[in-house]
Design a protein around this nucleic acid. Structure first.
Length: 494
RNA sequence: UCCUCGAUAGCUCAAUGGGUAGAGCAACCGGCUGUUAACCGGUAGGUUACAGGUUCGAGUCCUGUUCGAGGAGCCA
């Protein structure tokens, strides 16, 4: 008799000792071991049709119908319907299956059958159960198969992530993160980590979390960019990838206080070259998800046709043009005109045209992004923002110094800004002047200024927000579901 | 920080003008060999967020507090 997956016999002792009395532990274990069934994952079931295999997982849903019980098992890789017939397993095992509470852990052995009636992920395959062993009965699992409120679910986030939708979203997130690294690693970038504990505000714009650092003040990083700029002079193309922190009291579906951001930085690169890199990069992420997470996107009900459009080139709109477009949109809406999106559908999400009010020099708000992005079938670059509303380090256009070589990438369907990028100032005197103009302490930026003294080159970089990207790809309402344990204003538990 | 809305059974929500606290789901008991959030019958389940006020009488009206949701600003 071999152990589980060829392991020594110790795990079996565990089952025997801890098996609850409701389970005929010794009988089921004997049955499963003597069956010599192979342990497999649900995702692998299509390769095992007609074979007797063992699945190990948790009860996702159960429905009983007289002399048969459907146990929907999830094992982390998928969801499989396990069919328990009274006539096959006997009265005692059947009674156990019939009363097994949701989220109980259990092990089943049976024959894999292809059956179009079987729900699940991937679906179309089910297990004809021959033996069943309960590892632990879960009593009073709080999350049911009905709808729940946001606060309740967030309080139970540690359990909510087991639900199919959350499982699908977080698997897409993992693909996004893997695609990010894969593309950068294969395009000459090297990952160089940047500090999370930092001595001062990097950009001087947003509110930071302050922590005590042995009596001094330190701040949780809101960006690794400045350190990236040091790193390119050692490695040419670099990226940092990790959590970043904003203490802004934002309460919207697009904001977290802790979120993940990838920030590539490139030496010998101007803004035009940067945009080409960005559109290749984002397209690769989206197309990888379409290829590798078809089941997950289907489970989420995502309209993937909108994602299939995401291939280079992305439209490029100047800030000047965008302002003119928005002013025209508002005027037409106020005149009662019907304004349509790129596909001819009516513009959505704009209840009050006055929210679109904007004039040259103002930054975009959420309503502006929502309106603008609906005019395009794929992400759109907005280029050349006024220097006054952007960070101090952005390179001005030589012929129009009031605007800078900056570009935001706005995701379609109202998901907002997913990338902010720019060409950086490479001239030391100009950088020092900008730091002075912004009222920032030059002493704190001494090392950063010094980078322009020793072999300065034109360089550019950008930051992409992971949760917003995942929310867009998954088509979900709120970024909080794009993070396993999201941190928001008033949300630090669990 | 500001604006709007909300808090009733474990969960999601009802409750006429101020007059006995209701349903579905979950739980528990029973029935059913193809369910997809199954269905059918039954049982049990309540300090109506908290504090105060008006009233013969408050889930309902008033004041304050706490917590939550959406949005604005700010940002990815």
């Amino acid at each position: 008799m071999t152990g589980w997956r060829g392991e020594p016999a110790a795990p079996r002792l565990y089952w025997l000792v801890n098996a609850p009395p409701c389970s005929r532990a010794d009988d089921t274990i004997r049955a499963m071991h003597t069956s010599s069934a192979k342990n497999v994952f649900i995702r692998e079931l299509p390769q095992h049709v007609g074979q007797v295999v063992t699945l190990r997982g948790w009860l996702y849903n159960r429905t009983a119908k007289g002399k048969l019980v459907f146990l929907q098992m999830r094992d982390g890789t998928g969801i499989c319907q396990c069919v328990v017939f009274r006539s096959t397993v006997g009265d005692e095992t059947f009674a156990i299956a019939d009363k097994l509470p949701l989220e109980s852990s259990f092990i089943v052995t049976g024959e894999v059958r292809a059956d179009s009636r079987a729900p699940g992920v991937p679906g179309g395959y089910e297990l004809d159960v021959q033996a069943l062993h309960v590892v632990q009965r879960a009593e009073d699992y709080p999350i049911g198969p009905k709808e729940h409120g946001v606060e309740f679910l967030m309080d139970h986030r540690h359990l909510w992530i087991r639900s199919a939708r959350q499982w699908a979203i977080l698997r897409v997130r993992a693909t996004v993160m893997r695609a990010i690294r894969a593309w950068l690693d294969s395009h000459g970038f090297i990952e160089v980590t940047t500090p999370i504990l930092t001595p001062s505000a990097a950009e001087g714009t947003t509110t930071l979390f302050e922590v005590d650092y042995f009596g001094d003040k330190a701040y949780l990083a809101q960006t690794g960019q400045l350190y990236n700029e040091a790193n390119i002079f050692a490695f040419n193309r670099v990226y940092c990838f990790g959590p970043t922190f904003r203490a802004e009291k934002s309460k919207t579906r697009r904001h977290l206080t802790e979120f993940w951001m990838v920030e590539p930085e490139i030496a010998f690169c101007d803004l035009d070259q940067l945009l080409e890199i960005e559109e290749q990069f984002v397209s690769h992420i989206v197309q990888t998800c379409l290829r590798e997470n078809a089941d997950e996107l289907k489970l989420l009900g995502r309209d993937v046709s909108r994602l299939q459009n995401v291939v280079p080139p992305f439209p490029r709109v100047s800030y000047d043009e965008a302002i003119a477009q928005l002013q025209s949109l508002r005027a037409r809406l106020k005149a009662g005109e019907e304004v349509t999106a790129f596909d001819g559908a009516p513009l959505r999400g704009i209840e009050d045209p006055d929210l679109l009010q904007i004039s040259w020099g103002m930054d975009f708000g959420s309503p502006h992004e929502t309106a603008l992005t609906q005019l395009y079938d794929r992400p759109v670059f907005v280029i050349g923002f006024p220097s006054a509303i952007k960070a101090f380090y952005m390179e001005p256009y030589p012929d129009r110094p009031e605007i800078c070589k900056s570009a935001d990438l706005l995701a379609p369907e109202g998901y907002g800004e997913i990338i902010g990028g720019s060409e950086r100032i490479s001239d030391m005197a100009l950088l020092e002047a900008r730091i002075r103009d912004h009222g920032l302490p030059a002493s704190a930026y001494r090392w950063y200024i010094e980078l322009r003294k020793y072999g300065s080159v034109p360089h550019s970089g950008f930051g992409l927000g992971v949760e917003r990207t995942v929310a867009w790809i998954c088509g979900i309402e709120h970024v909080r579901e794009a993070s396993p344990f999201p941190r928001l204003l008033n949300r630090l538990y669990p």
